[in-house]
Structure formats: C-alpha cells, structure tokens
C-alpha cells in the first residue's frame, strides 16, 4: 500500500513542472523512506534527481517498495489543477496513480501507469573544483537578463564573484554576485539558456541554490528544502567551443 498526503501542492506542482520539461516519462520509486526519482533526458543533456522524504508529508504510508511509471505531462496537467490551499493525496490502485485534491470540493484524478523499459540511471559522482550558494531568485533573474542578448549563458566563479554573462549579436549582458564563499580556484562553463530555464521552473522548492562548477564540466544545481526533507537536483552538460 502506498499513500502520501501533503498540505501544500506547490512543491509537487513546481518540481514536476521542471521535471516534465526535461523528461517525458519517469519512474518514481517509493519505499518507507519516501519518494525518489532519477531521470536522464532523451538527448542525455540533463539529469534530474528528486527526493521527498516521508517526513515532508503529513501522512506517509508505504509498506512495500513501489515503482510508479508515469507520463510526466499527464501528471503535470493534473497537478496544475490544484489550488494552493488544497491538500494533495497520492495513492496507487490497479495500475493507476490516484491524485486527490481536497479543498472546497474533493476532486479525484486517475492517471494510467505506463511501461518503462529503461532502468533509471544512477547519478555520476563528479569532482567539481568550486561550490557556492546563491539566491534562487538571483539565478532566475540572471536568466531573464541574459535572454535579452543570447541563448547561451557563461557561468563563472572566481575567488570573489559568481558571474553570468552572454555576448550576443546585438549586445552583451553581465551579472556579478559577490559570493562570500572560500573558493581558491576559478571555473567557467557555458550552458544552453533554455536548458537552465527548464530546471528553474522548480520555483517553490528552495530560496537558495547550491551550484558546483568546473571548466567545461556539467553544472550541478541543487535545491534543498529548509526542513532538509526534500531535494531536487540537476546535472546539465556544458556547451563547449567547437
């Protein structure tokens, strides 16, 4: 039996909004510890990992591990119908994921489970030379700034600053943020703006993002809940000079 009840639907809504723009299908694994998923997009550019611990939920029951294979578009369409003060209840029944919103009315959706052939990949351990925390809102703003001139974004870290920049045909944009961390090295990688925008749809997760950067290395972006009961993280392959 699996049942998970949450008083705030926004976490699920925004996480799966990000996840659904990266992967079409996903395998959600549940056990007594909580819910997790690992997924790699079709072109192997973005990897996403979600972890929601049992403690995050108001009620959580999972007496044996389950695999919930689901079409992420269908799931997001349903989750987007939630109102912010609805309670969300997820359960499984005869090949369906049941999602119930309890608010003014009780609304129930059944989403058919699908077959997924590929095993979920485990994330690689990467050894990034730099790690820093930056406000999520600043990252989101930077994307909008860069978007004026380019579809690529260069992310750089040095001893003092985190920098985002772009050089476009019609102009340049530069964002500098004094990170205040103890960082001894420098790193720079270039990424697709569109791919970063997809990841940053996960709004409500955390106000702080942890970023790891290297030279021409994947971007490691981690959003961790203040309560430590949930984590959403991404790896994004860089663009490199041809």
């Amino acid at each position: 039996m699996f049942k998970a009840e949450l008083s705030d639907p926004n976490i699920l809504k925004t996480s799966f909004d990000a996840i659904s723009s990266i992967v079409d299908e996903v395998q959600i694994q549940t056990d007594s510890e909580g819910i997790r998923l690992d997924a790699l997009d079709r072109s192997h550019i973005t990897f996403v990992h979600l972890e929601l611990n049992a403690g995050l939920f108001d009620e959580y029951v999972c007496d044996e591990p389950e695999k919930i294979n689901i079409d992420t578009d269908e799931l997001v369409k349903v989750l987007k119908r939630s109102k912010s003060d609805d309670r969300v209840i997820m359960s499984l029944s005869e090949g369906n994921l049941i999602i119930t919103f309890e608010g003014e009315a009780k609304r129930t959706f059944k989403i058919r489970l699908i077959d997924i052939e590929n095993e979920s990949p485990s994330p690689p351990e990467l050894d990034h030379p730099t790690k820093l925390e930056i406000p999520f809102a600043l990252l989101k703003d930077s994307i909008a700034d860069i978007d004026i001139f380019s579809d690529k974004i260069a992310l750089m870290v040095d001893k003092e600053y985190f920098k985002a920049s772009a050089e476009g045909e019609f102009g340049d944009a530069n964002i500098e943020y004094l990170h205040g961390e103890k960082i001894d090295s420098e790193a720079k990688s270039v990424f697709s703006l569109e791919k970063i925008r997809e990841m940053l749809k996960a709004d409500k997760f955390s106000d702080i993002a942890t970023i790891k950067l290297g030279d021409d290395m994947p971007l490691d972006l981690k959003l961790k809940m203040v309560s430590d009961e949930g984590e959403l993280s991404f790896l994004l392959a860089p663009r490199i000079e041809a």
Partner: peptide, 14 residues
C-alpha cells in the same frame, strides 16, 4: 561557435 555536449562521458567515468 559552440556545441552541446552530453552527460554520457561523465556517466561512464563513475
């Protein structure tokens, strides 16, 4: 000019 890489190499290394 730049080209998009994939995560494949990094997955293999781990």
């Amino acid at each position: 000019q730049s080209r998009q890489t994939t995560l494949d190499n990094f997955f293999k290394k781990s």
